[in-house]
Design a protein around this nucleic acid. Sequence first.
DNA 1: CAAATAATCAATAGTCCGTTTGACTATTTG
DNA 2: CAAATAGTCAAACGGACTATTGATTATTTG
Lengths: 245, 245
Amino acid sequence: MKRIHHDQMARIGRAMSSRVRLRALNLLAQRPWRVSELAEELGESVAATSAHLKVLRAAGMVVEEKRGREHWCRVEAVEIFDLLVAMRRVAEAVLPELREAVRGDADDPHLLRVASLKELAEDVAGDRMALVDLRPTAEFDAGHIPGARSYPAAKLAEADLAPLRRWERLVAYCRGPWCLMAREGVQALNARGLPARRLRAGVVDWLAEGLPLIRGEQGAATEDKQGKEDARPRDRGPSLKETKK
Amino acid sequence: MKRIHHDQMARIGRAMSSRVRLRALNLLAQRPWRVSELAEELGESVAATSAHLKVLRAAGMVVEEKRGREHWCRVEAVEIFDLLVAMRRVAEAVLPELREAVRGDADDPHLLRVASLKELAEDVAGDRMALVDLRPTAEFDAGHIPGARSYPAAKLAEADLAPLRRWERLVAYCRGPWCLMAREGVQALNARGLPARRLRAGVVDWLAEGLPLIRGEQGAATEDKQGKEDARPRDRGPSLKETKK
DNA sequence: CAAATAATCAATAGTCCGTTTGACTATTTG
DNA sequence: CAAATAGTCAAACGGACTATTGATTATTTG
């Protein structure tokens, strides 16, 4: 009886034992993706991506929904956000290379040191600080930290930053602690005279803390809001529909 | 740069992608073990166990210390307890077989329904309830829930249960939610007229909640405390000593 | 209905895992 | 120092994993 349980749990471990699948999971934690879209972002072939998604689905970590000829994949179980954070914490605590990277991060003068995300939420709610979401529009729309403004890193150069100049404290976040966009985005903001700092946490950390996200566009940032209107919102539904054994 | 991080994290996933390694991790979370001792408990050859431990060490999840000709292995990073719990929660939420097992568990009349472990800690501290640790003595000595009394499941039949008769509420726990000892132990206690219930949580859950364990024997339960005096205490030290690349 | 699109599937080849076996190293004990 | 003990290591074998290729299915569009 005991064996079965660990056998099952090993499927979760296996799902998270590949670089590609972990990257995919992190992307899927931001918003639902189509298979080919994901493949492109990952730099993998569609067939390979499809196979990886099959493993993730078999482990129940990703759910797929067919819409016409497109297959939309998403992370559904909220427990997975906790797992991703717990795993990252272990990796950062235990693997020499990552420990060093974390130590280097701590020296980054652009990094915001924050006691807790809840406290940050209060600062934002009290308008004592502006929160900038650097992720692509589709990810912002699928779910962002309350009060955040969308300034996609890719379009920062042409963005009108005037609305941001009235805050003394400016904090930017993106997909997570290892995401390059935040580093580059913060530098770009600084170069344009804005005192922005980088938040290590992303929406995954936010959800793992039990804090709520806000869905839907609200942009107001880049005037051209670009297509992507088909990016369906994250649906934190009651349960997974199928795991197709 | 991003690739490296996910590559590293994948090592953690890989370490947890095998049934045997997961069982080993769960045992190592209870107390430090010697290699051959672990091999026997797992029902695997020493060589195979050694190989698995090598993987776990490479992932930084287990540390080894040589004492004479014996190699003692243990889980050192506290973050790992969180990870084990998070992973179990995902597995139970997402995998059909385990969801069913959990549902079945909920119907178990012997299962204690408890709001939070902290509340349980208060009940035990206030002497409104007795806590019984069913694990082997060595594991109890390496770390147990404060207030728990050691009644190893293996020796319940010969144990003197008289000291337990003065409580109306009796709760037993063991290695974790899937451990057979708790089920059998609770039945044995009930058979002998004690109104014991089973606690789903084990010491891993306890630690993941940030609650403290107590170390050292205090037995008083079975008069013969059996050898095992060499089982060294869990050492929640500052960091891992080496990962030997 | 034919063409185009989105994705899966099946077969293949190369790689990586996990176990076993027997040899080897280090340490203790007589 | 020889024998016993505790583990690791190297080779080998079978099985599983991953990426690629080309074929196949389902759906939409013209």
